[in-house]
Design a binder for these strands. Structure first.
Lengths: 235, 235
DNA sequence: GTCTATAGTCAGATAGAC
DNA sequence: GTCTATCTGACTATAGAC
């Protein structure tokens, strides 16, 4: 379809120079940015198509509906990112030869692909990272119905890796901890709340994802490796 | 205004029995539930007024606008909750007589008021708790502009308490940790993502706030008390 | 305080020409 | 594949009768 994407011969045989990005990709790029900024339901297709300089009808033509557009925007980045995560984890485990991996290494394999994406505009950059965080907190079935399917493999894979490293935690407890980790990361990356912090934290740049992750890592390692039981009393 | 609220004499002198909850409160109650479920922008005033059995115009009459309604819904619960938090912390510090408080105690004083609210329908119950979590992740200025003001005092109060207990962390690092804690709690309580877990976690009920918090506490204690520096390498 | 009626704007989606 | 034009319905907000 797009001569710039796959086939060099097709490119030279096409009669008119196309714009550097075709309609479908322009829509995806712009939608990524606006969805990340305003969330799903506060974003209108009119805003997207206007800013992308495409016709209003183009979204329905190419993606079917607003919900399917959101899904396409999200999948485009998450699928390769999750693939990277699993590959990193696999490579590490192969090297470790049966030994349980250190917590920090497991977390790194989870976070680094996201960090890489945040630093590379061709992988969505900070727009995608904010979208990633926001998506986990989106209400409404349009966004959530496809999320579990996308994350099923990754969650299972990390649960088993963590189970080896943290044998004292029950499966149930481990599930919750994974949930907490994802939640902390998602919330932090969504960055909605981070603005509150700036005044009290003079040198924190909320767009400095790498810096944020360096603060995040020890927190997560500490949380994951905590002992299991504390009982709430006297309520 | 409402005979059931303040003045018993006024009640007997009113000519007609009013419904058990007046219009304003009915709107607040219903709005709390729907905002919690669908988020700010996916919720329409028509849905709220219909379900509350009040006229569409009533919201604008009593609250001015949709945004101000959200603010009113939120403040009604959060203000007393944050008051409780600070009172608990003050009482604990008074008892400790200058000694730094244990981390677990600090966290408890933060979480218990929320837990109490979640168990008491008169304080909003699970509806409010979900709203509380979701609010922190809401995009859009309508919701966020009033949040920092509401939390300023609480954050400062907890930062100083934590600084005593964790003297090895810099102010900046402490700010981030507080941010992470709030994020983890918010994300968990919003419970949007929790549905993914149910299948893999046979005995977890996402409405069992108390159970969730018991899992959350050790994670947060571990995260907060972690050492400061881990450097990301090889990226 | 509560109601009806409506203004004014915007939404997502589609039919049909090119 | 892209466009215009339009349908249908929803939205917030307000004016004005009661």
């Amino acid at each position: 379809m797009n001569p710039f994407r796959s086939n060099v011969l097709a490119e030279s045989s096409s009669q008119h120079m196309k714009p550097p990005v075709d309609t479908k990709d322009r829509i995806l790029d712009v939608a990524e940015q606006i969805f990340a900024e305003k969330g799903y339901s506060a974003t209108s297709m009119r805003t997207i198509t206007t800013r992308a300089n495409v016709n209003l009808a183009a979204v329905n033509y190419h993606f079917g509906s607003k919900a399917q557009l959101y899904q396409a925007v999200f999948q485009r980045r998450v699928a390769p990112m999750n693939k990277q995560r699993i590959e990193m984890l696999d490579a590490m485990e192969k090297k470790a030869a049966g030994q349980p991996l250190p917590l920090e290494a497991i977390l790194r394999s989870f976070i680094e692909p996201a960090l890489r994406a945040s630093l590379n505009p061709k992988q969505g950059g900070t727009n995608f990272i904010q979208l990633l965080g926001r998506t986990h907190a989106e209400p409404g079935p349009e966004v959530h119905d496809f999320l579990p399917l996308l994350y099923e493999k990754v969650k299972d894979r990390y649960r088993t890796a963590l189970a080896k490293t943290l044998p004292d935690l029950s499966q149930e407890e481990l599930s919750w901890r994974v949930h907490f980790v994802i939640g902390t990361i998602a919330f932090t990356l969504a960055g909605t709340d981070a603005l509150e912090m700036i005044e009290s934290c003079r040198y924190c740049d909320p767009a400095d994802i790498e810096g944020i992750i360096q603060r995040l890592l020890p927190f997560l390692v500490g949380g994951l490796s905590a002992p299991a039981a504390i009982k709430l009393t006297s309520i």
